Computed example of a mutant assay.
Amino acid sequence: MTQTNNCLNCENLVSEKFCPNCGQNTNTHRINFKHFVLHDILHGVWHFERGLLFTIKEAALRPGKAALEYISGKRIKYYNVFYLGLLLIGLMLLLNYYFDVVSNHIFEPGIIEKDGVSKDKLVAFLESYSKQIIFAFLPLLACNSFIIFRRKKLNLSEHFIIAGMIFLGILVINLIFSALSFLQFIRTDLTDNISDFFNVATPLSLLLFLIYNYYKVFSPEYSHLQMIIRITFFTLFLAAEFVVFLRLLSYYVDL
């Protein structure tokens, strides 16, 4: 281990553990096998998983409070919300793909190939651009909350952080439901109606999660009645925007 008076990254003079100019640790090591395995690999993986898993847990259990902490400046322990969102969307699409494959194999062989020929243009477009479309709802959430919950005195970018963290929690819950939906392929009396259960439970849970956490974030600034009214308008605006979005998308795809 070598302690230097100059940062090896930017050559700025330093007198503390971290360079004030670029943030690099001034305790540098010669790279050898032991250091490479014990520090660079294991240390890096541990910190990556710790931040990632911590952010997933916070997004699923208390996304509103986590977002407010992040906005207030407590950011080092959180993994990038939007990168993590992309990762979870990818996992969700992968699970949905294998669900279709297993379903096709067990119940109706050949249905995927047949559907691929006569598939509706809108459905095909939604499947092709699913990641972009899912992320398109973030601006809707952020703009709606920025307009309706002005008393919190947050800017639009900070409303994007709140929307992103709550949206991340929605993805986590949806991912859990997607994984549990594979239980219906275990043919028992308990799993015969599990598909119908998930068809109802999943959207209902996601909607309640959204409403509850927006209520928790902004309720300190409003009375109970005011929050009920504002949450109602927030939900109605989102539903109306979703319908308009689908209409415009359908029109665009048919061009």
Rank of each mutant, 00 (worst) to 15 (best):
M165L: 13
F146I: 01
I134F: 08
T188S: 14
F182E: 01
V172D: 04
F99M: 02
S130Y: 08
V123F: 11
D100P: 03
A124R: 10
F167G: 14
I162Q: 07
F99P: 00
I162S: 03
S145A: 09
F137V: 02
S178Y: 09
I134H: 02
K119D: 04
I176V: 15
L126G: 05
S178N: 14
Q184L: 12
L180N: 05
D100W: 08
S178C: 07
L138P: 00
F107N: 14
F146W: 09
L140Q: 02
I133V: 06
H159G: 02
G169H: 04
F99K: 00
T188L: 10
Y98E: 09
S118I: 13
N174I: 09
L138G: 00
L93T: 10
N96D: 12
V172M: 07
I106N: 06
S118W: 06
D120L: 08
E113C: 01
A142P: 00
S118A: 10
G169W: 03
K152M: 13
S145M: 00
Y98G: 03
F185K: 03
Q132L: 14
E127V: 11
M165G: 04
L180W: 02
I166M: 02
K121W: 05
V172T: 11
I112H: 03
G169A: 11
D100R: 13
K121Y: 09
L175H: 07
A136T: 05
F99A: 01
N155Q: 07
D120E: 12
L171W: 06
F185L: 00
D100I: 07
K114P: 03
F167L: 13
K131D: 13
N144L: 08
S181W: 10
I162A: 02
L140C: 09
L183C: 11
L168I: 09
V123I: 12
N104S: 12
L180G: 04
F182A: 06
F137A: 00
Y97F: 10
Y97K: 12
I111D: 12
S145I: 01
L190Y: 15
I170T: 15
H105Y: 13
N96G: 13
P139T: 00
S157P: 05
I134D: 03
D189K: 12
T188D: 05
E127N: 11
I173L: 15
L138S: 06
N155Y: 11
Q132I: 12
D115G: 14
N174V: 09
S130G: 04
T191Y: 13
I134R: 03
G110K: 00
D100S: 14
R151I: 05
I176F: 14
L183E: 04
A136N: 00
E158L: 02
